[in-house]
């Protein structure tokens, strides 16, 4: 990690995500990526964070009605949080499986709905928490630490 980043104060970013607004969901991932690049964060870590944000935000746009994307940056870690109002996930373990998707045919035709989003988030995060209530919504929190990726992999 570049030294300048060590001294950066805590930064929080927040974006609104609307149903089926895929472009905006992608755009927020790009904006966070730019901020992290300006902070001088390591390329590899930025890549992982970008994947997490894109997939988490897309899940809100595709599978929920609306929600918030929040990014909390501290000198030790970054946490990506999506909180949505929507149908929720009845079986989180099943949803985590590679290839599992409830996306409609229409959504799949656009290249979404490969069932790789949650597995990719898990792969890129050091910690992942999903708290979902059927009929209410989902809270997803993924954390990337700036030090222990090597130890885990």
């Amino acid at each position: 990690m570049v030294d300048t980043f060590q001294f950066t104060p805590k930064i929080n970013l927040e974006f609104t995500i609307r149903e089926k607004d895929f472009f905006l969901a992608g755009e927020s991932a790009s904006r966070v990526k730019k901020t992290l690049q300006q902070l001088g964060m390591e390329q590899e870590i930025i890549k992982r964070i970008a994947i997490i944000i894109y997939e988490a935000a897309m899940n809100v746009a595709i599978h929920a009605s609306h929600g918030m994307l929040r990014v909390f940056i501290s000198p030790e870690a970054i946490t990506i949080e999506t909180e949505d109002a929507g149908g929720g996930i009845p079986d989180v373990d099943l949803a985590m499986r590679e290839g599992y998707s409830t996306a409609t045919h229409e959504i799949r035709e656009m290249g979404f709905g490969a069932g790789m989003g949650l597995p990719n988030i898990k792969q890129c995060a050091d910690e992942l928490k999903i708290d979902s209530k059927v009929g209410t919504g989902t809270l997803l929190q993924a954390t990337v630490y700036f030090t222990n990726w090597q130890e885990k992999h």
């Binding site: 992608g26 970008a50 997939e55 897309m58 290249g111 979404f112 490969a114 989003g117």
Partner: peptide, 24 residues
Amino acid sequence: DLLSDVIANIEENAVWITIQRHIN
């Protein structure tokens, strides 16, 4: 043509060949 696959695996400065043509 799978966006999750591209997001996870494409390198930087790449040419992306796809039949997807929507704004996303």
